[in-house]
Design a protein around this nucleic acid. Structure first.
Lengths: 339, 339
DNA sequence: GAAAAACGTGACAACGTTGACATAAATTTT
DNA sequence: AAAATTTATGTCAACGTTGTCACGTTTTTC
């Protein structure tokens, strides 16, 4: 049975009204008499009628947004995705996942396709794509709504609503925390010149050292990316040096986990012989031994806020660009000791 | 400029042909002369025309599939998602993410909505939803294509194409591995009566013990779920007992990580004082100290296969149900020693 | 108590595509 | 060289909605 999905016209026929009236009932429009309304609703329930989203979309703006990200394996992505999804569910929006390679040069083309084909009406951009001013402008030029998540203590411009996360301030706090405990030789792991979060955290690190009257030692700033393996490699490099640090600031928890691992390999006790801090408060930062002191980054909240802004932008079609900043809090755990 | 997105008719006008001809060019249909083809293509490029996916969808079956899962925070989800996404990209399909709570009783209703509204044409089901025979049948009754991923050494039935993963066999191998190294008191952490993967691994565990002439001790089989915290709690419980085990079989890596953590709390050296194995080979299983011996579960591959089956089902509209089984391999690392 | 406003309903044209069919031109077959 | 076939293009009706407008029927207003 049920060879075909019922349409609005099937409902109309059975309810003995015009299909436009059914449309009114479905969309909760005014000026439908109560008895017809209930009659139509009964038929809808009886047939288990679902409005065809595709057909509806032909007449309305898209109810979908895209989440665009670059590093598909980070835990950060799934947290963000969950945050976005929670908002989408609430507002009846659909989420299109769009992992991409920001180095491929294909991003603009890919996004143009999904926007141009009317598949999505808006886009949430994460770093490093969100830092690409030109990309944002080109998406905007295609009538797409854009919300971006960036690192910074203020929105870089008013191009579009922006969620900014104050990495510098957090980098400052956590470095100062180490300084307060007496550490003087603090290494910075995961410096990356193209990565705004890394740079922000680095600036905070420098600022805290300066405040304490210390200078930044080039030897202690190690470049690398935000992975466990890179953390291992950077720590190895560091431990080969003559002037060993007493504390390590990993630019994210994965780097810190790599450092932890490497310390164990070198029979260094953490935190007694070496203090290590991470950044992000990812789930596994409290599952390592010792549990990592880190900075809490509320990814789900951040992304949910981005989604909420984007959705209201798509619904209300406002031009006013609202921004939102997030401050990050220290999470003190067991991977740090006084010197 | 560019106030409106160009349509097929805009292209047609500019190219001086009928819009149907443009449609032919876009869809690569036969019987279009080469010069018109190139002329149209030039205009398409010039206007940066993208066929409107929504309009197209009104005439064709949906090019979207849903990924339905229950446990949004597991790493397993993102790996699967990536696998599915890779297939979708290749075939031009769209992915709709659908996390849900299998206990809410809302699942059928939720899926009915996205299927009924023509949003998706097919669904990939993961445990425990995939084990619900009735759910599968009801989705099938709505003309949806379904592919499910289940635990087992064979597909449970021919309702739909099925990816089955042999947990029992893997549970057997890893338990036998411990037995070979001389372990006799091996605990099983994460028994869960409603969880087929857990039960499969448990059956393998029992089979291996029997093969070695041992009986399963109730004391050593601890019920719990697949989380770090549960792993901690179960290990605590175990370590309070008189007859302590020499090895722990964690039903997944998170449980094993919890066990590792708890062992450390109790000053037990792993693997010298206690051997621990996990299951899944999630990224962090090689980032713990010591690195976990575990079973490799190729989630991305499994999910990619599921997506491939689903997509071919949606495209070719075949009725024949093709299945696919995965065997799991041991990954030997450092968390196990001979007794 | 007539005019105006508020309600309630329906007809019909979009929206941008694809599919069925028609038709004209070019080519092959008889 | 007429008939049949192939090739190349166009016309028009769907698809299932929502928006615009029109048209009755009530209720309110002066």
């Amino acid at each position: 049975m049920s060879s075909k999905k019922p349409t609005i016209k099937d409902v109309a026929r059975l309810a003995g009204v015009s299909f436009k009236t059914v449309s009114r009932v479905v969309n909760n429009e005014a000026w439908v008499s109560d008895d017809i309304k209930t009659r139509v609703q009964a038929v809808i329930a009886q047939l288990n009628y679902q409005p065809n989203r595709t057909a509806r979309l032909m007449r309305t703006a898209p109810f979908s947004l895209a989440f665009v990200y670059d590093n598909p394996n980070s835990h950060y992505v799934i947290e963000m995705q969950n945050g976005i999804l929670s908002q989408c569910r609430q507002k009846g929006f659909e989420l299109v996942i769009h992992p991409t390679d920001s180095h491929s040069g294909q991003v603009l083309h890919e996004l143009t396709t999904i926007i141009g084909s009317n598949q999505v009406g808006g886009v949430i951009l994460t770093p490093p794509l969100s830092e690409n001013r030109e990309l944002v402008q080109q998406l905007l030029a295609q009538q797409a709504k854009v919300v971006r998540i960036v690192s910074g203590s203020a929105p870089p411009d008013d191009l579009c609503p922006t969620i900014y996360v104050d990495d510098e301030q957090a980098g400052f706090s956590i470095t100062r925390h180490l300084l307060k405990l007496g550490h003087r030789r603090i290494a910075f792991l995961g410096y990356h010149k193209d990565h705004q979060s890394s740079l922000g955290r680095y600036r905070g690190y420098c600022a805290a050292l300066h405040e304490a009257g210390l200078t930044v030692s080039e030897q202690l700033v190690i470049a690398g990316d935000f992975t466990f393996d890179s953390g291992v490699a950077m720590t190895e490099q560091l431990l080969q040096q003559a002037d060993k640090p007493t504390a390590l600031f990993g630019c994210n928890d994965e780097i810190a986990a790599g450092a932890l691992f490497t310390a164990r390999m070198h029979q260094l006790a953490v935190p007694q012989d070496l203090s290590i801090v991470g950044f992000e408060n990812s789930p596994f930062s409290r599952q390592t031994w010792p549990r990592l002191t880190t900075v809490h980054q509320p990814n789900a909240e951040i992304a949910a806020k981005a989604a909420a802004l984007l959705i209201s932008l798509m619904l209300e079609n406002e031009t006013q660009t609202e921004h939102c900043g997030f401050e990050l809090q220290l999470v003190l755990r067991d991977s740090v000791s006084t010197l």
